[in-house]
């Protein structure tokens, strides 16, 4: 599904990623771990198409296409979803209107008919329970005045509605208490299927108690220095990152 080859990227002239190789297959869950400043969020943002990051060399192939040639919205249409580390507020735009617009854009790009308000509401009712999101948040402005936990759950709710092929969770666990963590993880797990894949970017191991990865990668100073099974995460938890230097 996703092949990253020798990816180098920089922001404002400073090189952050120094040669990343990564392959993600359908049905897999990959965890990318690493200390602060190792380049985890950079990688997540590059996959989503954020312009501030400049890819200096290397390639990304997604479902047989050159991902780097696609605009962010085209990537979204083709099933890439980024759960933001810091979800953005859009005052005056209701959460449910925003999400319907998003879903319909994706559907239009796939030649599907747009959903009207009634059809969409039906879908929303089904999905909202997955993340135990308070229904009153649907008609509030996007993320405005949401608590940290509500924002993160709202991201997973959007993911549930948009049903992406490749979901990238950028530090979704940061700032969550243990209950919220469990709810978010349950949401992610119940959306898992043999046709989609998930990349979980995280600083801590604890999210991986709930979302069990097939592969764990350790990112350090812009390179993947170690990959392994889920036990690698536990090893990192007990030993820290220092032993990898």
């Amino acid at each position: 599904m996703l092949q990253i080859k020798d990816l180098h990227a920089s922001i404002e002239g400073k090189e952050i990623l120094k040669g990343i190789d990564l392959e993600v297959k359908k049905g897999e869950v990959h965890a990318i771990m690493g200390p602060n400043g190792s380049g985890k969020s950079t990688l997540a943002n590059i996959l989503a198409g954020r312009e501030e990051y400049e890819v200096t060399s290397g390639s990304i192939n997604y479902l047989g296409e050159d991902l780097l040639e696609l605009d962010p919205e085209e990537r979204a249409h083709k099933g890439i979803f980024l759960a933001f580390q810091y979800p953005v507020e859009i005052p005056g735009v209701s959460n449910v209107y925003f999400l319907r617009t998003a879903l319909n854009e994706v559907r239009k790009s796939q030649g599907l008919e747009e959903l009207d308000a009634a059809q969409f509401l039906k879908l929303v009712r089904r999905k909202i329970d997955l993340v135990e999101l308070d229904k009153s948040l649907l008609n509030r402005a996007v993320n405005e005045g949401f608590s940290g936990g509500e924002k993160k759950r709202n991201e997973i709710f959007q993911m549930a509605v948009l049903e992406p092929k490749l979901a990238i969770l950028d530090e979704t666990d940061s700032g969550l208490d243990i209950d919220a963590l469990r709810i978010v993880a349950n949401g992610v797990n119940s959306l898992k299927s043999k046709d989609n894949a998930t990349i979980v970017v995280t600083h801590y191991q604890r999210l991986l108690d709930y979302i069990v990865p097939d592969v764990v990668h350790v990112l350090f100073k812009g390179k993947i220095v170690k990959s392994g099974g889920k036990e690698l995460a536990l090893e990192l938890e007990s030993k820290g990152y220092d032993w990898l230097k």
Binding site: A48, G49, R50, E51, E52, D71, P72, E73, R75, A76, H77, F81, L82, F84, Y86, P87, V88, E89, I90, F98, L99, T101, A102, L103, E105, V106, S109, Q158, L162
Partner: peptide, 17 residues
Amino acid sequence: GEDQIFYCNQRGLDTEQ
């Protein structure tokens, strides 16, 4: 903000939308 626009882009809306 660029942040707001990118957030919308990532959900499938083009920049003018």
